[in-house]
């Protein structure tokens, strides 16, 4: 079902997992600084699925409506990164990153922009770290706020493109003391996946090759 040229070998999976781990660790470290609280992370999940399935995987995760900060990235490999959490968590997250100094009215006022900035910091640090590990540069768009279900977050429609395969990465995070949870998701399309395979091979060669 998955073409060989994009099917990841075990080591490549390991490598990608580590790279994402590094990126997410950096992102978590930043989030920790912003909310001055413990942030826990899950081990990254990685699947090659259709875009539609990816949207459904996200939709399956939360009952309530979702809010996401979306940043597209482009370079040797391209895709989309999202920081997603339930809309009901939104204000609490804003309260956390603004340091509990603002009135509810002020928080509501700054909500949209504060979410964008938070997503920007988390997704940027994650993507930038990955780019650094793979020794390629990426350009990133400014963050957008998206509200809705999984389909609207991934822009899944009735078109054939929605049935195309993507690499879908997601990591749970939770801010324990704040009762905030969400996840970081990344979607890469097939040409990117093929490119990514090459970069991962290079990465593995750099790591393993010099001491094997």
């Amino acid at each position: 079902m998955i073409p060989d040229d994009i099917a990841l070998q075990e080591l490549e999976r390991d490598a990608l997992t580590e790279i994402v781990n590094i990126g997410v660790s950096r992102a978590a470290s930043n989030l920790r600084k912003m909310v001055a609280d413990q942030v826990i992370l899950s081990v990254p999940s990685m699947e090659v699925v259709t875009k539609r399935r990816a949207a459904r995987l996200i939709a399956e995760r939360e009952v309530s409506d979702l809010i996401a900060v979306r940043q597209d990235f482009a370079g040797t490999f391209s895709g989309r990164a999202l920081l997603i959490f339930p809309q009901s968590n939104s204000l609490e997250l804003v309260r956390a990153v603004t340091g509990d100094e603002m009135s509810p009215a002020e928080i509501a006022d700054i909500e949209h922009e504060a979410l964008a900035e938070t997503g920007n910091i988390i997704l940027n640090s994650c993507l930038a770290t990955m780019a650094n590990m793979l020794q390629r540069s990426l350009t990133m768009t400014v963050p957008h706020i998206v509200r809705g279900d999984g389909s609207s977050l991934f822009e899944v429609g009735d078109d054939a493109a929605s049935d195309g395969l993507v690499l879908f990465l997601y990591i749970d995070f939770a801010i324990r003391q704040r009762d905030i949870r969400g996840y970081i998701a990344m979607v890469m399309d097939l040409p990117s996946l093929a490119a990514l395979k090459l970069l991962l091979a290079e990465f593995i060669e750099r790591i393993v090759g010099n001491a094997a």
Binding site: L11, I19, I204
Partner: peptide, 17 residues
Amino acid sequence: RARLRIAVAGILGGAER
């Protein structure tokens, strides 16, 4: 060994776990 090197590389690159 390769697996382990990649994992250690992750830590050396800034991974936490």
